[in-house]
Structures are given as structure tokens and as C-alpha cells.
């Protein structure tokens, strides 16, 4: 299990940031991703492995209206 935006979330061995975003259908273009409080750049999403117990944040910035 990991924490995603402070909620319990399923985890599997080798899960990357890119796969997690796809799994959650987080398709919004303006997301800031943190793994254990460290910002992950979009170019590193595919290579960043999330470990069991990690705290991940995927912060969507407001827009619209």
C-alpha cells in the first residue's frame, strides 16, 4: 500500500509514477507530483519507481471558469 493524496492506494512491485498516473486516469496536464515530498519532473515519471509505503501526492492545479 502507498498513500496517494493522503488516501490508501494499491501498490505493486515496480510501480512507476507514470503508471500510477495512468492507473488513476490522472490525465490533467497541470499536475505536480511529489514522492515523499520530493518533486518529480515529468521527464522522470517513467523512471521513478514508487516503493511500498511511499507517500505520493499528485496535486492538480485549479483552472477553468
Amino acid at each position: 500500500m502507498i498513500k496517494l493524496n493522503n488516501r490508501e492506494c494499491e501498490w505493486q512491485e515496480g510501480l512507476t509514477v507514470q503508471e500510477l498516473l495512468k492507473l488513476k486516469t490522472f490525465t490533467y496536464p497541470r499536475i505536480i507530483v511529489y514522492v515523499n515530498d520530493k518533486i518529480i519532473s515529468p521527464e522522470d515519471y517513467a523512471s521513478t519507481i514508487i516503493e511500498d509505503g511511499d507517500k505520493v501526492k499528485a496535486i492538480h492545479l485549479m483552472a477553468g471558469g
Binding site: N5, N6, R7, F26, Y28, K57, A58, I59, H60, L61, M62, G64, G65
Partner: peptide
């Protein structure tokens, strides 16, 4: 009308304002 506050992502998705 949503022009006062649009907080759906902040609340529902980001869980920033629990």
C-alpha cells in the same frame, strides 16, 4: 455560479483541504 470558488480538484482529487 463557479466564479466565486472552483475547488473540486483541491478537495475531491488532491485532498488538500480535508
Amino acid at each position: 455560479q463557479h466564479d466565486e470558488a472552483w475547488l473540486i480538484f483541491m478537495d475531491m482529487v488532491n485532498n488538500q483541504i480535508p
